[in-house]
Design a protein around this nucleic acid. Structure first.
Length: 952
RNA sequence: GGGCCAAUGGCGGAAUUGGUAUACGCGCAACACUUAAAAUGUUGUCCGCAACGCGGAUGAGGGUUCGAUUCCCUCUUGGCCCACCA
């Protein structure tokens, strides 16, 4: 056994590779196609955790593989080096954010290099470098010129601890994503980017992307396109119309009130103007102020309990039926979505339903669910006989029992059930049917249960299809006094008392949700589809088909709305890209002209958070502004959200020293779009969407030639602690990569992470100390292979296994299944050790396959066996030989009636006849096949399947 | 509440995409080497039984099929994302 001294090997090759500039990627390489492999760059937090290894070292395996496949592979790295932690270090420990950040970078660079990655460090970038942020600012000024960057009064998320504004995406569970402090709502003038202008394109262009469907779907949901109608409700005084957005115009006849958000403009004007008709101004003002100040968390915590205030003095007209309806203000309506006002349909919207119950508002059903009886479905070609009927749940006066009607001619168990006669009310029909069918006559209050519905079923004894409008009622008997029922009724059914919980035995109607709800004492709105009722000329139409016609009838407009909101990007912070805007003496904003970019981040600032931006105190910035633009001009003092920095960094790597543009079109032509982008799933709706947005903006101004930045995308999984929990210092389950590398070597850590599970599925994998020992053993055994070379002669078997392995590894790597690729290598090693036979060529090929996984060890062993050779990492990937994999004989599985009954060995390419003949000769298999059998399937060289079942 | 995804031995996971379920690794057990342990090696390791055989098993139940971990339906559990989005 040869010694595997990982420390020695790693030290040796790390330096050699740097000396030889092994990983510097030229813009073009003779005879090689360019391939851009990208991984999300890190924030320089101080040191690498095991997640970083998973993020960078595994894509490195892929990058190396592509390089050996003959591609000119770009695998760049940089640092997302602006951001809050640097500033927090400054505030807490009085450190210079720049020094703190750059010190961290130096250390992390060393760690990254220890991984054995093929990063091209000559292209390293840092977003806090003026040479970089000059172009971030340039992009901003272009957006400003196009009206895509604007300052607007909005309600913002304010973190009182970080003393800054956060984007919606940075608020998690109503708390600050960074520090966990509860978020308050504040109104503030705020720089915004108009991503909503691009919503449609961001959505549509997803279709053509070669990304996992899951990721695309998540972005689609985030963009949240919905098609609905804008409908105008005229208020009594006709001055203040209220426009609402709805996706359920079909329920318009069921609107019994309107609700506006606390932020709605109607409230603003009504409270300020004297002529407003609102009578309870004080009450409204108090409610609105309270709810706007309410934190996100409170708003969510109060989800169950609806609150609101009636706007006294204002009524609106339902344009569908001219009914007068009240108007409320409530915070269950969002100011920022749609028009900030909703039409409330309590019968068919759960939130409206809850609100109506609390405020005692009328509930009008306009959609009737359609119930098709599965046991007695309508038969085609039969007449349809429409009918109204009632179903009555009759409760025993003292016991928890209800009446079940057991039919004699049909296999039915039902409630009391019967038709409503012409001119008869539902309630009268209930009393009559109960008396006719059961004889009981002293009943309590009649209660309607759930919604009217349309049932469709076939009535066998009348040979018609019934389409019945039915309503369920509940009554409690006052006593058991009853009249004798008629002989005719007696002949039809028995009346039986059954326990209340047996309601599921009732068929078919008890399957209906609202019956079930009744018994579980929950009440819900009916939000599904159905047939329109109480809707004038639309009665009888299908709810899914009337949105357009109802909208047109009331002069509404069809309208598309998005959930996506504009991106708020201003930060009252220091350590970020300064917003390159100056204000003239009238306060009008102007972009800093390109010749003055980069608009430098001044260094004479005080970091103590005050709620005002630190740059506000920079004399240097003020002076610089006046010097350039003149007296009375003032600078913008906010910095940008760091997500902007990272929304275009991939365009910089490809031409990192360009002084004329973000990157030349020539460089873009060489590299863009990114061929493979690896990252974390947490960036699906943030970074990934923002990058696509900026790319499209840049495309529109001609700065880039591609409309989409990333051709392919893979979201990696999560590495958990050995206990299966998320790693955290407080749980004490953190795995320190540096210590692991020290102990077992970088190659082992890389390879173990690759072996832990498939890379392209965002699962979570626990770190297993035993597992990593297994990989270490594997590499140690590989070190021992050299001893077998040319010792035992040539084994055909080993040659075949080698090519099989090569084939498997090659295809697995293309699909990011590094785990099974490694498993194939292990299987091969097991074969070699068994036969102890290996040629020099076979050994070299094995090392090449190992090279992307364990770059240090492969290089070391390679240098020993191929004297004076170039690095193994510039060798080309071996090709497998199909001929060598071919077997002369193959194993065929024999199935009988779907069960495995044995295998036979036959020459490759045997015909069906040969195989059957062989089976007939094989007693232990043939005994399963009775005299009469049928050959169901013959797959050459694989399987044969028989059926003996004569029924088939 | 909505969307997406998953569920296979004691554990991480394989399975040619509808064709021999449990590859590979870990763990465990026995044995060898050793004074002993570690390391290493060899063998075994889904479950049941009247055990060289047969039956059962891929979260549960049903369906399609000669054949289902794979496709379809219902349900259960778990994960991720979103969430009073009209």
């Amino acid at each position: 056994m040869k010694e595997y001294d990982h420390k020695e090997i790693e030290k040796k090759w790390k330096n050699k590779w740097i000396e030889d500039k092994l990983y510097e990627t030229p813009q073009k390489k003779e005879g090689a196609e360019n391939f851009y492999t990208l991984v999300e760059f890190p924030y320089p937090s101080g040191n690498l955790h095991i997640g970083h290894w998973y993020a960078f070292a595994i894509p490195d395996i892929y990058a190396r593989f592509m390089r050996m496949q003959g591609k000119n592979v770009l695998y760049p790295i940089g640092f997302d080096s602006f951001g809050l932690p640097a500033e927090n270090a400054a505030i807490k420990h009085g450190l210079d954010p720049k020094k703190w950040t750059y010190g961290n970078i130096d250390y992390m660079k060393m760690q990254l290099q220890s991984m054995g990655t093929m990063f091209d460090w000559s292209r390293e970038l840092r977003t806090s470098d003026p040479k970089y942020y000059k172009w971030t600012q340039w992009i901003f000024t272009k957006m400003f010129e196009k009206g895509l960057a604007y300052k607007a009064e909005t309600t913002v998320n304010w973190c009182s601890s970080c003393k800054t504004v956060l984007a919606n995406e940075q608020v998690v569970d109503g708390k600050c994503e960074r520090c966990g402090t509860e978020i308050e709502k504040r109104k503030q003038k705020q720089w915004m980017l108009k991503i909503t202008d691009y919503a449609e394109r961001l959505l549509n262009d997803l279709d053509d992307l070669d990304w996992p469907e899951q990721i695309k779907e998540q972005q689609r949901n985030w963009i949240g396109r919905s098609e609905g109608s804008l409908i105008n409700f005229i208020t009594e005084d006709t001055i203040e119309n209220i426009s609402v957005f709805t996706t359920r115009a079909d329920t318009l006849f069921g609107v019994t009130y309107l609700v506006v958000a606390p932020e709605h403009e109607l409230i603003d004007s009504a409270l300020s103007e004297n002529k407003s008709r609102i009578k309870n101004k004080e009450e409204v003002r108090k409610y609105v102020q309270k709810s706007i100040k309410k934190s996100e968390l409170e708003r969510q915590a109060n989800q169950k309990e609806k609150t609101g205030v009636l706007l006294e003095g204002i009524t609106a007209i339902n344009p569908a039926n001219n009914m007068e309806i009240p108007v409320f203000v409530s915070d269950y309506v969002l100011g920022g979505y749609g028009t900030g006002a909703v039409m409330a349909v309590p019968a068919h919207d759960q939130r409206d339903f809850e609100f109506a119950e609390k405020f005692n508002l009328p509930v009008v059903q306009v959609i009737a669910p359609i119930f098709v009886d599965k046991d007695n479905p309508p038969l085609e070609g039969k007449d349809i006989s429409p009918r109204r009927n009632v179903q009555v749940i009759v409760k025993h006066p003292t016991e928890d029992r209800i009446i079940q009607i057991q039919w004699k001619q049909q296999p039915w168990k039902t409630f009391v059930i019967g038709g409503v006669e012409e001119g008869e009310s539902y309630e009268d029909a209930v009393l009559r049917e109960v008396q006719e069918e059961t004889g009981y006559k002293n009943v309590g209050k009649i209660e309607r249960i759930g919604w009217q519905m349309e049932s469709r079923f076939y009535v066998a004894h009348k040979d018609v299809n019934r389409k019945a409008f039915s309503q369920v009622f509940y009554i409690e008997l006052r006593d058991l006094e009853k009249d004798e029922i008629t002989q005719e009724e007696k002949g039809l059914h028995d009346v039986v008392w059954v326990p209340i919980d047996n309601f599921r035995d009732f068929n078919p109607v008890s399957e209906l949700p609202h019956i079930q709800e009744f018994f579980s004492v929950e009440r819900h709105a009916y939000t599904g589809e159905g047939i329109l009722i109480n809707s004038g000329e639309f009665d009888g139409s299908l709810s899914t088909e009337v949105q357009k016609s109802i909208t047109e009838k009331v002069n509404g407009n069809l309208k598309t709305t998005f959930k996506l909101r504009d991106w708020s990007i201003g930060r009252q912070r220091y350590w970020g890209t300064p917003i390159p805007i100056v204000f003239d003496p009238d306060g009008k904003p102007h972009a800093v002209p390109e010749e003055h970019l980069p608009w430098i981040l001044p260094e004479d600032v005080d970091f103590t958070p005050t709620g005002k931006a630190p740059l506000d105190k920079s004399e240097m910035l003020k002076k610089n502004t006046e010097d350039i633009f003149g007296k009375g001009w003032t600078p913008e003092v906010e910095t940008m959200d760091t997500f902007i920095d990272s929304s275009w960094y991939f365009l910089r790597y490809i031409d990192v020293h360009n002084k004329e543009s973000i990157s030349s079109l020539e460089a873009q032509k060489a590299w863009m779009p990114v061929g493979q982008y690896f990252g974390g799933s947490e960036h699906t709706t943030l970074h990934l969407l923002y990058s696509r947005f900026l790319q499209k903006v840049l495309f529109d101004i001609g700065a880039v030639a591609e409309m989409e930045p990333f051709r392919k995308r893979i979201n990696r999984g999560l590495i958990m602690g050995p206990d299966g929990q998320k790693m955290s210092k407080s749980k004490g389950n953190v795995v320190d990569p540096d210590a692991m590398v020290e102990k077992v070597g970088a190659d082992v850590v890389r390879m173990y992470l690759a072996f832990i599970g498939p890379y392209g599925e965002a699962g979570s994998y626990p770190w297993d100390m035993g597992g990593i020992a297994g990989i270490r053993r594997f590499l140690e055994r590989l070190c021992g292979l050299e001893a077998y070379i040319e010792k035992e002669g040539v084994s055909e078997r080993v040659e075949k296994e080698l090519h099989k392995m090569l084939k498997k590894v090659t295809s697995d790597m293309s699909e990011f299944k590094f785990n099974t690729a490694i498993s194939a290598m292990m299987i091969f090693l097991n074969h070699v050790e068994k036969t102890k036979s290996l040629t020099k060529e076979q050994y070299q090929m094995t090392l090449k396959i190992l090279a992307p996984f364990a770059p240090y060890l492969a290089e070391e062993l390679w240098s020993k066996v191929v004297a004076g050779s170039e690095s193994i990492h510039v060798q080309s990937w071996p090709k497998y030989d199909h001929e060598k994999i071919m077997d002369a004989e193959t194993t065929i599985a024999v199935q009988v009636d779907g069960k495995m009954r044995g295998t036979i060995r036959v020459p490759v390419g045997s015909t069906e006849g040969d195989v059957v003949q062989k089976i007939k000769e094989t007693e232990e298999i043939f005994r399963w096949i009775s005299a009469s059998y049928e050959l169901k399937k013959f797959i050459p060289d694989r399987l044969v399947s028989f059926a003996t079942d004569t029924k088939v």
